[in-house]
Simulated assay, not measured.
Amino acid sequence: MPTEENLVRKAIELVAEGETKKAIEVLLASLANPDWSIRSYSAQILGELGKISLSEELFTTTIQSMSMHLINETDGWVRESITKAFGKIGANNPQLVKDIIPNIVSVLIKDEHEGARGSAAKSLGDIGRKSPDLILPGSTLDYLAQRLKSDESWIVRYYSAYALGEIGTQVPDEIEKYIEILEAATNDDDDGVKNAAKEALGKIKKSK
């Protein structure tokens, strides 16, 4: 049975040897491991590998596989890790994740795990900062605003404010109708959410 330490060592060794494809194969296989912590760690490493300039073909296949695991995953912590990995990959190359944006949005609006919802919001913000055209179609901004306004978890509200700020710096006109919600969030009960909303408003104002 692999451990987190062994998994990391194996992946690093393969990447160092120029065998990135094999490293990804090992990590994808580990997403089916019965141990949730191994699945979670595998997703985290895949996200880190997403920061490397790899072939589009390789990562398209990787993302498709991760997306299927996300849909079928029963553990909230693992869904959080997979969703967070999508954000890291998408921040480096947004086009690679364009087809699974709806999956990330689904986690944001439906997942019962607050960490998964929070990572979905952050990932949408990170992807939207690089390529807002992938985020604007549909009701993604509406969903982020709804989460900022009423989610019971401070971490989800925090990252929803963050996401609106990141996307808003690129398309300030599109974000205009959500300014009141961001302003209201500056009076949130949680100091972190207050600060995130203030920072988002400042970024949007500066970008105009």
Rank of each mutant, 00 (worst) to 15 (best):
M1V: 04
P2A: 01
P2H: 00
T3R: 07
E4D: 07
N6Q: 09
L7W: 02
L7Y: 01
R9C: 00
A11V: 01
A11E: 00
E13R: 10
V15R: 08
V15S: 01
G18H: 00
T20H: 00
K22F: 00
A23R: 03
I24T: 02
I24G: 06
L27M: 05
L28S: 06
A29R: 11
S30H: 01
L31C: 09
N33A: 10
N33E: 06
N33G: 04
D35F: 02
D35I: 06
S37W: 06
R39C: 05
S40L: 04
S42D: 02
A43P: 04
A43K: 05
Q44L: 07
E48D: 10
G50A: 03
K51A: 02
L54V: 01
T61K: 12
T62C: 10
T62R: 04
Q64I: 03
H69F: 14
H69D: 07
E73M: 03
E80W: 11
K84S: 12
K84G: 11
G87L: 02
I89K: 09
I89D: 02
G90P: 08
G90D: 07
G90Q: 08
A91Q: 12
A91Y: 05
N92L: 02
P94Q: 01
V97W: 04
I100Q: 07
I100T: 07
I100F: 05
I101N: 06
N103R: 13
I104G: 08
I104K: 09
V105Y: 03
V105D: 03
V107E: 05
L108Q: 10
I109R: 15
D111P: 11
H113A: 10
H113T: 07
E114Q: 13
G115H: 01
A116C: 05
R117I: 08
G118R: 08
G118L: 06
A121F: 10
L124C: 05
I127V: 15
K130L: 09
S131Q: 13
I135Y: 08
L141G: 06
D142N: 15
D142M: 11
A145H: 04
Q146T: 14
S150I: 10
D151N: 15
D151K: 15
D151F: 14
W154I: 06
R157K: 15
R157G: 01
Y159D: 09
Y159G: 04
E166F: 09
E166R: 15
T169C: 06
T169F: 04
T169M: 13
V171A: 14
P172A: 12
P172Y: 05
D173G: 06
E174F: 04
E176Q: 14
E176V: 06
Y178H: 12
I179F: 13
E180V: 13
A184K: 15
A185T: 08
N187L: 14
D188F: 12
D188M: 09
D191W: 10
G192P: 02
V193Y: 05
K194L: 06
N195W: 12
A196K: 12
A196Q: 13
K198C: 12
E199R: 15
G202W: 07
K205H: 13
K205Y: 13
K206N: 13
S207Y: 06
K208Q: 14
